[in-house]
C-alpha cells in the first residue's frame, strides 16, 4: 500500500482472525491490529483528527503550543503529528506510567510535566486544566471532550470493521477517553444497529482511585452510555493472563490493556457458544507490548507480574 506521507497512512489496519482462541467455527474472534499505526497505537487516529479539525477551525498557527493530559499513548500520537505539522507539545502525564512512554514522548519532541500518581489520570486532567487557564495562548485539544476524537472512529475504524467483517455481531474496546467506543458505537447505530458494543474498563491498583472525595470522580464529556450494550471491569491478573495467551496461542504481542479487552471478548464468546449462537466478535488491539517490557508484565509468573504492575497505569 502506498501513501504520500506518514500521516496519510494512519488507520487501514488489518483485522486478524483468531482460530485457536475462538470457541468454535460459529463463534469467531477477530483482532483489529491498531499497533500497526505510525506510533504503534490506536491513538494515532484520534490525535490526527483532533489536530486536523483544530486546523480547519483556525485554532492552530505554525509554532503554537499544544497541551494535553495523557497517560501516554495519546501524547505519543500527538507528538508525532505535532512534529509533522510544526507545533510544540506539552504533555501532562501521571508519574506512574512506564518509562518507555517518557522515552518515546521525548524522542518525538514533546515536553513532559508529571502529575502525582495518586488519582491517576484524574490528576493529569486537573493539572492540565490549571495550566490551560494560566496560559491562554496554549491550545488544549482535550481528548476526553473533543468530538474529533470519537469522529475519527466514526469515519475510519467503524467503516473499516464493517467492510472487513460484514457479519460482525459484537465490538469490544477499552474504555478510557471513550472515543473509540463512542465513535464506532455511533457508526454501527447508524449502519448496523444490532451490533453489540461492549466496553472493557481497566481496574487499576488502589492508588489510582486515591481521590479525596467521591465527588472528584471523572466521566469523559464524550461518554454516552446509551451507545453501549454492556461494560465490564477487568483487573490486572485477568488482563495479564489474556495478554500472555494472545501471544502464546495466536502469536500477537500486545500491550496489557488489550488483555483486558480480550478478557471481555472471550467472556462474550463463551456465552454465545453456550447459547448456540453465531457470533463474530471484533476487538481492538490498542498497542503492541513493546512499551511495557520494562514493567515486567511478560516475565515470571502472572502473580509476579501483577505485583510489578500494581499501582501502574497499565492501560
Amino acid at each position: 500500500m502506498r501513501f504520500d506521507s506518514l500521516l496519510q497512512s494512519v488507520g487501514h489496519t488489518p483485522l486478524i482472525g483468531l482460530p485457536r482462541l475462538s470457541p468454535s467455527s460459529d463463534v469467531r474472534l477477530w483482532a483489529k491490529l491498531e499497533d500497526r499505526n505510525p506510533t504503534g497505537s490506536v491513538k494515532d487516529r484520534a490525535a490526527l483528527n483532533m489536530i486536523l479539525q483544530a486546523e480547519a477551525q483556525g485554532l492552530l498557527r505554525p509554532g503554537c503550543t499544544l497541551l494535553e493530559p495523557t497517560s501516554g499513548n495519546t501524547g505519543i500520537s500527538l507528538a508525532m503529528v505535532a512534529k509533522q505539522r510544526g507545533y510544540n507539545l506539552i504533555c501532562v502525564m501521571p508519574e506512574n506510567t512506564s518509562v518507555e512512554r517518557t522515552q518515546l514522548l521525548t524522542m518525538w519532541g514533546a515536553t513532559i510535566i508529571t502529575s502525582p500518581a495518586a488519582g491517576g489520570s484524574n490528576e493529569a486532567v486537573r493539572v492540565a486544566k490549571g495550566l490551560a487557564a494560566q496560559n491562554p495562548d496554549w491550545v488544549m485539544l482535550y481528548q476526553y471532550g473533543n468530538e474529533a476524537n470519537a469522529q475519527a472512529h466514526y469515519d475510519s475504524t467503524g467503516p473499516e470493521l464493517l467492510s472487513d467483517l460484514p457479519e460482525i455481531t459484537h465490538f469490544v474496546a477499552g474504555l478510557g477517553t471513550t472515543g473509540t467506543l463512542m465513535g464506532v458505537g455511533r457508526y454501527f447505530r447508524d449502519h448496523k444497529p444490532d451490533v453489540q458494543i461492549v466496553a472493557a474498563e481497566p481496574r487499576y491498583g488502589e492508588v489510582v482511585y486515591g481521590l479525596r472525595n467521591i465527588d472528584e470522580g471523572f466521566i469523559p464529556e464524550l461518554y454516552d452510555a446509551s451507545l453501549l450494550t454492556s461494560r465490564f471491569s477487568v483487573g490486572p491478573l485477568e488482563a495479564l493472563k489474556r495478554t500472555r495467551q494472545l501471544l502464546e496461542i495466536e502469536g500477537i504481542f500486545a500491550g496489557i490493556s488489550t488483555g483486558a479487552i480480550l478478557h471481555a471478548a472471550l467472556g462474550i464468546a463463551k456465552k454465545a457458544d453456550e447459547a448456540g449462537q453465531v457470533a463474530d466478535i471484533a476487538f481492538i488491539v490498542c498497542d503492541g507490548g513493546w512499551k511495557y517490557l520494562s514493567t515486567g508484565a511478560y516475565e515470571g509468573t502472572i502473580e509476579e507480574a501483577e505485583t510489578k504492575i500494581e499501582g501502574q497505569l497499565w492501560a
Partner: peptide, 10 residues
Amino acid sequence: ITILPAVAGG
C-alpha cells in the same frame, strides 16, 4: 459486588 469511583483513562 465491587464499588469504585469513576476515574479517567486515556
